[in-house]
Design a protein around this nucleic acid. Sequence first.
RNA 1: CGGGGUGUAGCUCAGCCUGGUAGAGCACUACGUUCGGGACGUAGGAGUCGCAGGUUCAAAUCCUGUCACCCCGACCA
Length: 585
Amino acid sequence: MRRPTVVQPMEPVSPMRWSRYPINTMKDTPAEAELVSHRLMLRAGLIRRLAAGIYTWTTLGLLTLRKVEAIVREEMDRAGAFEVLMPAVQPAELWQESGRWGEYGPELLRLQDRHERDFVIGPTHEEVITDFVRRDLQSYRQLPVNFYQIQTKFRDEIRPRFGVMRGREFIMKDAYSFHLDEASMAAGYAAMRDAYTRMFTRMGLDFRAVRADSGAIGGSASEEFQVLADSGEDAIVFSDGDAYAANLEMAEAVAPAAPRAAPAAALERVATPQVRTIAALTAFLNVPAAQCAKTLLVEAADGGVVALVLRGDHELNAVKAQKLAAVASPLRLASAEAVLAASGAEPGFVGPVGLKCPVIADRSAVVMADFTCGANAHDTHLTGVNWGRDLPEPQVADIRNVVEGDASPTGTGRLSIMRGIEVGHIFQLGRKYSEAMNCAVLDEAGRSTTLLMGCYGIGVTRVVAAAIEQNHDDRGIIWPEPIAPFQVVLVPINPAKSQRVRETADRLYDEFTRAGIEVLLDDRDARPGAKFAVAELLGIPHRIVVGDRGLDAGKLEYRHRRATESEELAVDDALAFIRSRLAPR
RNA sequence: CGGGGUGUAGCUCAGCCUGGUAGAGCACUACGUUCGGGACGUAGGAGUCGCAGGUUCAAAUCCUGUCACCCCGACCA
């Protein structure tokens, strides 16, 4: 028996016979891939890299990508949003009008046309949609309205990495809603929150909605949808006492319950040669880090410097710090020269005592008593320092990252920290863009009213990577069924040798296909082990093996991708059996 | 952008130190043997050694420059 010969072009072929389907898997992992999802996407042949952060989606990869898109589209439509498709290339004028031409920075890919007119490749579409709406909507009667698109974006990331997880070119679903008043904006936001919850639930992902910083996009209320995965780039914070969940950037660190103790020690100067870090200090003086003050000098909004004081075992939260009026945004550490000028010492020996600049202490730092800190002199620290006695009471703010075990800001429970992958982000934007771009309609009373906006993003390509990050084992991908490229893989054993096997597999394939089940028939003349290994790499949820061994008893073998054992089923029951195992769609 | 590293066949890499015929495994093609967990044999196709300059009788190898990519830190769907 020969291998399946190449089918002539005129001959109708069924698209899902493996021998005719473009699947290209790899045994070796390309050296560039660090993250599991990136490795598996390359090995399974879902994506191929063209340049840094720029990928081709293969036929196989597209099957999953399109399924994710379809779920997103269905839920957006269900929520009453209307699909549009905006240009990827946008004129600079719109960005100048909104002010972001100057604000956005190098992440915005700018280009010129032949007439030397400036354009950008859209990293997001607030400007374009606002322009569209201000031209097309004239009456409050047309509100509220929500437009969305599923489209390719480009962000010239500082460091693209992890394959499609943090690519420069990526597919995003972005939606923008327009409202006459706050209540309507809040309702539109809530509707999107529900839609997102439905989508990610349908996709079979373990995710959480968490409070977030609204960052560069601007606006007020904002939540991120985070897929839980140890490899996630974001730290997310949960309370064990209630539903509180927030991005670490946003999670409030509450003031300690216990008041500051009365001073018990005298202020002393101690020589601490070469002791520049909290770790070195705790070792050298044998004091706990929580008893030390960490003083960071950062650039001030007025051009000078500001001292930020934290407990030695805590970390500065840059997002919180740069929101303080006195602190320059974005946050930058003061230069070594500026540190010397303000403190009289080099970094490592700075402390809040006698500093010639404003001092802002964290809520946890201000309740310390008898603490240790830099003396603002070379190779010297102070011990037994007390606020109020040895230095003025500082301004107090929440400027640190919460840590595991902190009290929840809601007052109930303790905080724990997990890792997440941000796959969605929803914002109430308010009038940031509509005001800058004069997007208004006439209200009931005939008054011109600037619209309120919400915007809602989903990283469609990132969702695929996140799903793999959360669903894999050492053999490969384990797709959640709703986004699997195929629901079923049919594996005939030695079909070239057994006509019975071949015919049974063909018949099941036709039967399943007619029933609307997405089935891939592995009709290659490969060894069984190779077929199993590749099917597992691809992560197809349901596998049916057709072999002479089973057919002698009229049986097939079924195995779910997550199962470790196969089960038998009668050939004649195959369709009914598979239907019973498929998730309702 | 700062720090570290890598560019040799589609993929993983050896060769470079010590200059002299460009290699292995996987993948691919043909044939044969094999056939329930990524088989084996034989034969074959496939590489401007990232690019440019220099040194040299001779450069994948040494030197200079340049580009690309990867990893670690500040941004985001």
